[in-house]
Design a protein around this nucleic acid. Sequence first.
DNA 1: CTTGTCATTTGATTAAAATCAAGGCCTATT
DNA 2: AATAGGCCTTGATTTTAATCAAATGACAAG
Lengths: 245, 245
Amino acid sequence: MNIDIRMAHLFSTLDDTQVRQVMESSHVSTLQDGESLFETGDEANRFFLVVGGQIKLFRVSSNGDQKIIDIIQQGNTFAEALMFMEHPIYPVSAEALGPAKIISFDSKRFLQILSQSFSVCFRIMGTMSQRLRGLIKEIDDLTLQSATTRMCAMLLRRMEEVGRSHFTLPAAKGVLAARLSMKPETFSRILQNLSSKHVLKTKGNEIQVTDQELLRSLAHLESVLGLEPEQPCVLSGAKSLQIDA
Amino acid sequence: MNIDIRMAHLFSTLDDTQVRQVMESSHVSTLQDGESLFETGDEANRFFLVVGGQIKLFRVSSNGDQKIIDIIQQGNTFAEALMFMEHPIYPVSAEALGPAKIISFDSKRFLQILSQSFSVCFRIMGTMSQRLRGLIKEIDDLTLQSATTRMCAMLLRRMEEVGRSHFTLPAAKGVLAARLSMKPETFSRILQNLSSKHVLKTKGNEIQVTDQELLRSLAHLESVLGLEPEQPCVLSGAKSLQIDA
DNA sequence: CTTGTCATTTGATTAAAATCAAGGCCTATT
DNA sequence: AATAGGCCTTGATTTTAATCAAATGACAAG
């Protein structure tokens, strides 16, 4: 096993001895698509590093549909925040999104190592407060904004991430829909509407943004009000999806 | 100056001595609307607590218009994540949104205090992860549930808090509405509908829960599906608020 | 090449909550 | 008591997204 866990910044400041210590309590698993890692309410005595693929964190509501809280990309750790709690319980469920490979670590053991180094502590606090920020932002993404706004914000984020106006969606549309807490149908319709407004072109999972300006304003809800009312979208079912006004 | 900075989770586990130490390096400022606190690219050696008002975090894009990243509400700290980084640079600009009052803290000094003991670090990490959990819960409160569900959950919480089925709403209805992320009108209608279903009686801000059973099930969305469809509520405007169905 | 499965799209409909527009009802001040 | 300004309520309407129901498409297995 020659994976260097220092790729994850949680471990990046550990020296060789510490890495060895940590690895002693670790366990590598290969997961198939949809395979569960843990569920909401399980006792949380391990945390994880995604070595390959993606892990989906989600909750299931009583009516059965799931809200995707986060999708952890390879190279990142998750559930490490819980290790500082008294009776840690996973607040979400986790399963592989496509085939994935993960390493799990014993929380207690890692805490012991932490108590040797402040710099590792500080790093963790850094990640945690970034995550806090992210969640807070997500909360108002979810409350203050419409489905279209959320969609545009996501596209914009993605666009800035890759640095080009042409890119591939980072996951299946249905998954992204859930992530943005909307139904796949709604996702599809919004995309279709943006397309009819010449904001972007789609081909499968390929997106080509053509009107960056408009996308940006839609994503921020500002200036949208300033747009001139245009003739309604010709597509009959799309009445409710009009961007303008 | 008798502000207790322990209202912020970052400080919540500090003892009196530590609070005093932290306060020594602090500085209180009153900001007018639009007054700048720092700009993108500035060296980040302080972090902040919003005591009053709101602070807007934003970036200015190349074409000159600004993108709002976040709005920090009073009682919250911001830019503290940066203090755990190597060469901290503010990634956003910050300015007051309306008149605001903030306290700034010296990051290095705070780190020194942290370095005094692992237990303080661990406690902070503990609080942070609790908060993380809280936010996750809040996210699905907001996404997985309907306005009625949120309302019922809030009433139930309140009821169990005071331990009686008769209680006073903890704030003005409009405020509660905003808290539950709905409009005052919606709040009013839901209350009215619950009333017509004999779940509760209202008189001003007084609530008397009469059907605890039903309230509970509405708050959990379970078993709601099992209810028999009843005749529609007589009030014409209330069609969309029916609980059953 | 067919079949089956799964994801996506499309259309029609319904439901939930926002919005718009009055009114009503307190309570504080004059 | 009269008036004004806040809330809160109510009604009508519109908007948004969910739901239901079918097509369509894509891809892997046989």
